[in-house]
Simulated scan of single mutants.
Amino acid sequence: MTPTLRTERLLLEPYAPEDEEDFVALFQDTDVSRWMGDGPSTEAEDRALFGRVFTKVYAQDLFAVWAVRRDGELVGHAEIKRTEAVDGHEIIYALAPAAWGIGLGTELARALLDHGFGPLGLSEVHATVAAENTASLTLLERIGFEHTRDIEEDDGSTTRVLTRRR
Rank of each mutant, 00 (worst) to 15 (best):
L112Q: 12
H126A: 05
P3K: 01
T55P: 00
V161S: 07
R142Q: 03
P17F: 10
L10Y: 05
E84N: 10
R160N: 02
T128Q: 10
G72K: 07
A111L: 05
P119K: 09
Y93D: 03
R52I: 05
V24A: 08
F145H: 04
A44S: 11
T158K: 06
V129K: 00
L12R: 05
I151E: 15
E79M: 12
K56I: 01
R166V: 15
P3D: 13
L120S: 01
T30Q: 14
S33G: 03
D38N: 12
R34W: 06
V161N: 03
D155G: 07
F50H: 04
L26T: 07
E107F: 04
H126G: 05
I143N: 10
L112M: 11
L11A: 04
E84A: 13
E73R: 13
Y93P: 03
I151V: 15
D46P: 01
V75D: 09
D71E: 15
G101N: 14
G121E: 14
V161A: 10
R82G: 03
E141R: 13
E43G: 00
R166C: 14
P14A: 06
R47Q: 06
R160V: 15
F50C: 02
R160H: 11
A25S: 14
M1T: 09
I92P: 04
L108A: 04
M36G: 03
P3I: 15
F54K: 00
W66K: 03
K81Y: 09
Y58D: 09
T128A: 08
F27A: 01
I91C: 07
D87V: 10
R70H: 09
A99M: 12
V68K: 00
R52A: 02
E21C: 02
R69V: 12
G72I: 15
T106Y: 01
L62Q: 03
F23C: 01
I143D: 11
G156R: 11
K81N: 11
L108E: 11
E146G: 10
D114R: 11
L162Y: 09
V125F: 00
